[in-house]
Amino acid sequence: MNYLKLVNFEVNRFIKIYIVLLGITMVSQIAGVIVKANQYVGDVNQAIYEELTPKAEFLEMYGQISMGMLTRSMWFTGPIALCIAALLFYLFLIWYRDWFGKNTFIYRLLMLPTARLNLFWSKITTIFLMVLGLVAVQLLLLPLENLFLRMIVSKDFRTELSIIQIIEQSGYMSVFIPTQLLEFFINYGIGFMVVVVLFTAILFERSFRFKGMFLGIVYGVSCTLLFLSPILITELIGVGANYFYPNELFLIELALGLIIVAASIYVSHFLIKRKITV
């Protein structure tokens, strides 16, 4: 199937940078756990054996160490922010690199004997695989890091946390890894919608260049307004944002999201088939 071949091709194009990103994340997080835990153990030894602070008093002052705490350190937030930035950048690069530079690979892609929308799908699939891949690796890393912490710090000085508790205490991880499956689909559904709209805007720009950039921005803003319209309209006419019951609002947003995704795919299909230019 040509779609899968294209996905494979796109993945292979990014794999080197991706492995570097994964490497940085793994090394930084694990190093972070080891460094921070050893620091803490150092503090404990200093306080208890040298300054003869009672254990209880030490814990009162510094508290126990926990994975939740560590996830908020730069060792964790740094590489995660880097991955996010890289993937955000890649959202644009995945299209524009085929036009720019010495090679014009877009010729080759557009001339493949396959539906051109497959290019769109393959690029979006690649982005999602990369994001979910990072999430998966993070989920594998957490138990491992938990193990390291357990090895370095004795039981009395650490708070034992489950993976879910670590995610909840980190504050930010629950955006990528919500604890409820439905929320997972909601968050990634919204993410999917945003990427589809962004890709449509990029295709506008690639079809009509400068004018297209303007059209793309207008399209993006319109989609945003449409998605937020239940809240905007109720505020505007003065009935208040709680005019809709929460579950009604959920269903309305779901419908609007589906409309936006469908419209974006339809427009993208039209643009990539009829209007795109090399």
């Binding site: 194009r13 010495k102 090679n103 014009t104 690979f105 010729y107 080759r108 001339m111 493949l112 004997p113 396959t114 539906a115 051109r116």
Partner: peptide
Amino acid sequence: HKETYERVAFIPDAITMLP
């Protein structure tokens, strides 16, 4: 249409593969 690309080949004056 998409099958046309199995009937017509274009050889552009550019590098069309990844360097």
